[in-house]
Design a binder for these strands. Structure first.
Lengths: 180, 180
DNA sequence: CTTGTATACTCATTAATTGAATATGGAGAA
DNA sequence: TTCTCCATATTCAATTAATGAGTATACAAG
């Protein structure tokens, strides 16, 4: 029974993010999060999955739902962000991701919401992520230094170093577009 | 009951790969696959998970297990590759991965076994992956061409393009080390 | 008048993951 | 010696997650 505080995965935080605009029902949220010009590029989830996530968020107290009858239309379950949900969302938004493999989905989800907030929020996120990115570069360089040249791990770290360097370039380029 | 043929995930194929060397028991396989200078850099799995995977592989007929008593030591369950298992492994090994997100784990697992086979196998894999990688670059360029500049999807594709280009550079560099 | 699609959510089943349980031998410390 | 800790080797029950189908209505198009 050691429940502690669950750290919801990025996709749940994204759900919270969409509820900032105001209460929504599940079906609506599913459409929004599946939008192929937005987070649909990052995650795809089935309806039943989405409702499961919303249930968890409600158990954690990050959202509350109320049934709203729309007779004769099917009744809607409206989800609303709680104060606790708002807090955890902004905490998540302010933090860079801690591993390169989280960039593709989690970082870009954060960026999505940061950019929709305002340029400063986006800039702050990029700044922090740049620092973390630099630490990855340093770490991989250290790993390379202690790996036998052309060994499997050396080869692998060469690749990973290349990936994080490409990320760094991208962060630089993106930051420039924000300064205008 | 539409079972069809299950396409096992990369980690199961890796298990088959380790059985090429000869029959092994689960505990041994767990140690081998967890080796931090090998596939342990890519995947980490718990013992109980490993046995679950082996059970699936046996159901599919890719391995067969026999119990071997080692009294008074705990009995071992020895796993052996079947002909069908060997076939599916080499088919997997010969194919490049079909999506950028599969490079980090699946492609590098393939490379691990390809390189341990011989240089030609590795070279063939790299060659094929280069072709696929080029197609990713083309695709992202097309996406960029039809995306509104500085839109979210444009931004995202810029990033993805950078990543696959870095992969391409790495493939080039790695291929050169093979030619010596 | 019929077919198809959009709305809106639930549920039972299957699949995957987890941590713990089991049971023994051997190494090293006290 | 005796105690403790770690390595060996696998299984299992229990929790969690994922999937597809089911339900039921409205509305538009053909």
């Amino acid at each position: 029974m050691c429940s502690m505080v669950r750290r919801p995965p990025g996709i749940e935080l994204a759900l919270l993010g969409f509820l900032l605009q105001g209460p929504q029902h599940g079906y609506q949220l599913h459409q929004i999060i599946s939008d192929l010009s937005g987070l649909g590029l990052i995650w795809r989830l089935k309806q039943s999955q989405l409702y499961a996530l919303l249930n968890k968020l409600e158990t954690d107290g990050f959202v509350i739902s109320t049934i709203k009858n729309q007779d004769p239309h099917p009744p809607r379950r409206i989800f609303e962000l709680t104060e606790s949900g708002r807090r955890i969302f902004f905490a998540w938004l302010a933090d860079p991701v801690t591993a390169p493999r989280l960039v593709r989905q989690d970082f870009f989800a954060k960026l999505y919401f940061a950019a929709r907030e305002n340029k400063d929020t986006a800039r702050r996120l990029i700044e922090l992520q740049r620092i973390v990115c630099q630490s990855w570069i340093d770490r991989f360089n250290e790993k390379l230094a202690v790996s036998e040249q052309a060994s499997y791990s050396w080869t692998m770290y060469q690749y990973r170093l290349g990936q994080v360097k490409a990320l760094q370039s991208w962060l630089d380029a993106y930051e420039k577009t924000l300064s205008t």
